[in-house]
C-alpha cells in the first residue's frame, strides 16, 4: 500500500512527487521503487531501454495503472487515494476521473476516437466532462487546431489523417481540457521518421509556453534541446537524473553510458 505523505512532499511547487513507487504485472516486478520530482513549468524527459518501466510509471501518474507500494502525488493530490485520519481510502471511479481531467495524456498509438471527426474528438470531453457550452468548446478547439496547424482538418475523420496529424490532434484534444500537466507516452514512436518533426515542434511550442510536461521518449535530440531535466530509468528504477548536458555529456553510471552508446 502507498505510504502516507510527509510535509516535505506536499510542497505546492511540484507537479509530480513519486517516492518508492512499485508495480508488478503478475510475478514480474516492473517498477521497483521509483523516485521522481517534477516542478511546475518544467519539462522532464524519461529515457531508458524498452522494458525499463518508464511507460508503466507514466501510466501510474494517470492511474491507468495502480501502484502497489510507495507514494505518488500528482498536481498536489495522491493518485487514486484520499488521505483521511491517517488512512488511505481508495477513490471512487468518479473521483479518479476528476483527477484525470486535470492531467493531459498523449499515447504512442494516438487513440483518437475513430467514429468522431477531429473537432468532435477535441470538444467531446470539454463539453461532457467540464460542462463547457458547445459554442465555446468549438471556439477553443479551433484555436487549438490552429496551434497544431490543422485548422483545415476540423471535419476530417482521424483515419484520413497521417500519423503525425493524428498525434497533433491528440495533443490538441488533451490540451482542450486545460491540463496542469501533460504526459507523453512515446508520442513519436509510432510515426514514420519524416513525421516525427511536426509532432516534436508542437511539443516544443508547448514547452516554450511553460507547460509542465513529462515525456517518455526515445528522441534524444528532443530530450537534450527541450528537456529541463532528464531521467534515465532501467530495470524498474531511476538510475540517473540530471540536466540534459550533465546526462548526455557526462553520464555518471555505467548503465547510462552503455545506453547512450547504443542510441546516440
Amino acid at each position: 500500500m502507498p505510504a502516507p505523505a510527509d510535509s516535505r512532499d506536499s510542497l505546492e511547487s511540484f507537479a509530480v512527487v513519486a517516492r518508492g513507487v512499485e508495480k508488478s504485472f503478475g510475478s514480474h516486478k516492473v517498477l521497483k521503487g521509483v523516485d521522481l520530482r517534477v516542478e511546475y513549468g518544467k519539462v522532464v524527459c524519461i529515457l531508458g531501454p524498452s522494458g525499463s518501466g518508464k511507460s508503466t510509471f507514466l501510466r501510474c501518474m494517470n492511474h491507468l495503472e495502480r501502484i502497489e507500494a510507495g507514494f505518488l502525488r500528482v498536481g498536489g493530490q495522491l493518485v487514486g487515494y484520499r488521505q483521511h485520519a491517517g488512512k488511505l481510502y481508495e477513490m471512487r471511479h468518479s473521483e479518479v476521473a476528476r483527477q484525470r481531467a486535470d492531467i493531459g495524456m498523449v499515447f504512442q498509438s494516438f487513440n483518437l476516437f475513430p467514429h468522431m471527426t477531429v473537432l468532435q474528438n477535441i470538444i467531446e470531453a470539454p463539453i461532457g466532462v467540464r460542462g463547457i457550452p458547445k459554442r465555446q468548446a468549438i471556439e477553443e478547439a479551433m484555436t487549438l487546431l490552429a496551434k497544431v496547424g490543422l485548422t483545415a482538418k476540423a471535419d476530417a475523420y482521424p483515419r484520413t489523417l497521417s500519423g503525425g496529424q493524428q498525434q497533433r490532434v491528440a495533443i490538441a484534444r488533451a490540451l482542450a481540457m486545460r491540463p496542469k500537466l501533460m504526459l507523453f507516452d512515446e508520442p513519436t514512436s509510432a510515426l514514420d521518421p519524416e513525421l516525427v518533426g511536426e509532432v516534436l515542434a508542437v511539443m516544443k511550442g508547448l514547452a516554450a509556453e511553460g507547460m509542465t510536461m513529462v515525456v517518455v521518449t526515445h528522441e534524444m535530440g528532443f530530450a537534450r534541446d527541450v528537456g529541463d531535466s532528464v531521467v534515465f530509468m532501467d530495470g524498474g528504477v531511476v538510475v540517473e537524473q540530471g540536466t540534459p548536458s550533465e546526462f548526455f555529456d557526462n553520464p555518471r553510471t555505467e548503465r547510462a553510458r552503455a545506453f547512450l552508446g547504443k542510441v546516440l
Binding site: L64, S94, F107, S109, E124
Partner: peptide, 24 residues
Amino acid sequence: GQREAAEALGMSRFRVMARIILPQ
C-alpha cells in the same frame, strides 16, 4: 486504447461506454 484515452480525459464510466465504446 480507446477506453484509456477516454478515461485519461476524465470521462465517467457511463460516458466512456455511451459515447466512445458502444458507438464503435
